[in-house]
Structure formats: C-alpha cells, structure tokens
Amino acid sequence: MPDFQVILADLGWPLAIALAWLLGEFIHRWTQLPRISVYGIVGFLLSQAFPESLTSGASSTVTTLANFAFGLILFEFGYRINLRWLRINPWILVTGLVESAATFGVVYLIATLTGMPSLTSLLLASLAMSTSPAGVLRVINEQNSSGQVTERVLHLVAINCVLAVFVFKVVVGFWVFETSGSLTQAVSHSLIELLVSAAMGAILGFLVPAVLRRLGALAQDGTIAFALGVVLLVAGSSAFEVSPVLATLTFGLAARHSRVAFSRTERNFGGIGELLTVLLFVFAVSTLEWDRVVAGAGLGMVLLLARFLVKTASVTVFAKVGGISWRKGMLTGVALAPMSVFVTLLLEQTRYMGIVLVDELAALAAMTLVLEVLGPIFTQRALIWAAETTKKEI
C-alpha cells in the first residue's frame, strides 16, 4: 500500500496549481479580483498547511519552471517597450529615475533608523525600487488595457526593474567582498554579470528574428521560436550564473526593434504560458514562512506605505511636464504597486552563489505577501479608474 505522505509529496505541486487555477477562475468571475491575487492567497495557505509537499530548492524542477515562466513574461514585457517613445518624451525616463531613486532613499533611511545593518538596508532598498513586471503585465492583459497610463506604467516598470537589478547586484557584490574578501569575486557577481546578461539577450534578440526571416514563417512559428529562445536564455543564465531577468528583458527589447511581431492570439504564450503563470504566482509565496512574515510585519507595513506614497508622489509631480493630467499621473503611480514575483525570483537566484538573504530580510517577507495579494488589485483599480480597460467598474 503506497505511503500517503509520499503520494502527497509527489502530487503536491500539481494539486496546488490545479486548485489555484480553479479558485482563481471562480473568484475572478464572482468578484472581478485579479486572478493572480487569488493564486497568491492559495499558494501561501497551501504552503503553510503542507510545507513538505510544496518544497522547492534553488535547482529544483519547480524553481526552473518558475524561472521559465518569469522569462516568458519578461520577454513579452520587453517586447511592449518602445525605446523611441523615451527619446520623444524624455520626461518618462526622468520620472522613472526620480521615482526609483526616491524609493531607494526613503526605504534605506527608514530601515537604518530602525537599527537594521547598513548592507541589509541597502539590499532592502534596492528590492523596494522595483515593480513586478509579471504582476503588472498580467493585470494589463487580463483587463485588455491600453492608453496613456498603461503605456507609462509599462515603461516605468522597465526602468525601475533594470535599476533595481543593477543596484541589487552591486550591493550583493559588496556583500560577497565583505564575507569573502575577494574583490574579483565581488565584481564578477555585479557589473560583469549584468553586461553578460544584457549581451546574451541582445544577441538572441537579433538572431531569432534573422532565423525566422530566413525560414519565411514569421506568422506561424514566431511565438514558438521566441519561447524556445527564452528557455535557452534562462538555462544559459543559470549555467553561466548571470541574471535571467536582464537577459530575457533585453531579448524582448531587441526582438521588438528587429521589427518582428508574433501573433496577438498567442498573448501570454498561449495555454502553456497561462499554466506556467499559475505555477509562478503560487511559487512566489510558497517560499515565505509564516513566522518570518509575522516577525517583519511591523517594519514591512511601514516600508510598504512609504514605498507606495513615494512612487505615487514622484510620478504625480512629473505628470504635467510628461504630457498627462495630475490625475493620470497619480493613477500611474498607484499602478506601480506590485513587487512580489520579481523580488522572490531575484532572491532565489542569489542562492546559486551560495548567498541566502531571505533570513536577513524579515520585513521583505511581509511586504512580499501583502503585495502578492494587494499589488495587482491596486494596478487593476488604477487602470479601471483611468478608463483604459474594456471592463466596467463594479
């Protein structure tokens, strides 16, 4: 007779994904809440109830699939970014730089004032700069949103994510130097890593479209080719210990500017992409522990409020000079709330270097859990209030 615990361990992730998807569909239809918020709630509750069944190491199959899912979203996200728009309206770039720097500064200041070590405060501040491309893009696609607020949100997220990765890697480099004393090792995990990541994505971004033109089957095979490119990039990033975040984002940017379009019917990379997305958002909170969430709840809530107010205020200040109304500027800032998936996978990737930072950042656990649920709701409401969705306000 098979052992029940063994069966539960084997079926843990498939059952969790199936349950999260099913509840996501039902609750979305009843309440119009974003599906990914439901996935987060279900994932966290199941991971606390059955921790041994939803385990995931740095090199586990689940972690690899989550990285593939995030890579697909980042590619599609990068594909939506128009660099020419930043040249035409440089105030968008200025807004992104200011809101990222202001968020970093305020979070760092609050963290140090509470007695947190300087290096830990720097790590926390660098992660707080970011907005999750996965959360934002999924809500935009779910709402079929388009317009000034939508486009500005996409571009601001791209800016603050690149800055967050850059600063995070530099801080981790200092962390490595402080613990190992090796300046060479520290540099290799920061600037060089970022350059290699961007180069890998850019090369593939020009290579894949060239192959598709040669085959003459852009309309039929484009989505598959790009998905395979993402798989290769994520696997290659793991093998060479570089950033899959920057690599896949650059891949999407380069592919867009090679003027190759994949079919709109394959948004989110079709059914497989949808399935991997459920896994991604369940995985993002399965790494959290209730004790750590409770321990960091007080500081986490203060930092969340500060992050939200700073991002919203920074974007609102530059609204008029950037060509939109104060109201739309404020709504753009509100839509930058999601953070969780980006932070979770960035921290998971440091495990490849033998650095475990989660224990140092209890406040981040609370921030991640809250924004996994509330972040997408803020984005959804902001897009609805901006009248850029096809769905009526309820």
Score class of each variant (00 low, 15 high):
Arg259Tyr: 13
Leu347Glu: 13
Glu348Phe: 08
Leu347Ile: 14
Glu388Cys: 06
Ala217Trp: 15
Thr103Pro: 06
Val358Cys: 00
Tyr108Asp: 02
Arg256Gln: 11
Pro2Arg: 15
Ala382Phe: 11
Ala66Val: 08
Phe177Leu: 14
Glu274Val: 10
Thr390Gln: 04
Gly78Val: 00
Ile224Ala: 11
Glu151Gly: 05
Tyr39Cys: 14
Phe174His: 07
Asn268Met: 11
Leu124Cys: 05
Thr112Ala: 06
Leu83His: 05
Asp291Thr: 09
Gly173His: 14
Gly71Lys: 06
Leu33Met: 07
Phe50Gln: 08
Arg307Phe: 14
Val136Ser: 02
Glu393Ser: 13
Ile41Arg: 00
Val98Trp: 03
Ser59Tyr: 13
Asn268Lys: 15
Tyr39Gly: 13
Arg138Pro: 05
Ala254Ile: 04
Asn268Ile: 00
Leu253Lys: 10
Ser118His: 08
Ala386Arg: 10
Ala199Phe: 13
Val187Gly: 02
Glu76Val: 01
Leu374Asp: 07
Thr114Pro: 02
Leu124Glu: 03
Gln32Lys: 13
Glu388Trp: 00
Ala255Arg: 13
Gly270Pro: 08
Lys320Trp: 10
Leu309His: 03
Glu178Tyr: 05
Val107Gln: 04
Gly173Trp: 03
Leu156Trp: 10
Arg256Val: 09
Tyr108His: 12
Phe77Glu: 00
Val162Met: 09
Thr184Ile: 12
Leu97Ile: 10
Leu369Asn: 07
Ala365Met: 01
Leu93Val: 11
Val94Met: 08
Gly375Thr: 14
Gly323Cys: 07
Thr389Gln: 05
Val136Glu: 01
Leu280Ala: 08
Leu331Glu: 13
Ala69Pro: 08
Leu279His: 06
Thr64Pro: 01
Ala199Lys: 03
Asn82Tyr: 13
Phe318Asp: 02
Val187Met: 10
Thr61Val: 12
Val170Arg: 09
Ala217Met: 14
Glu360Lys: 01
Ala227Trp: 00
Gln349Pro: 01
Ala128Cys: 14
Val282Arg: 09
Val370Trp: 00
Lys311Asn: 05
Gly329Ser: 04
Ala125His: 12
Tyr108Val: 06
Gly57Phe: 15
Gly105Cys: 11
Thr120Gly: 02
Ala227Asn: 06
Ile73Gln: 04
Glu151Lys: 04
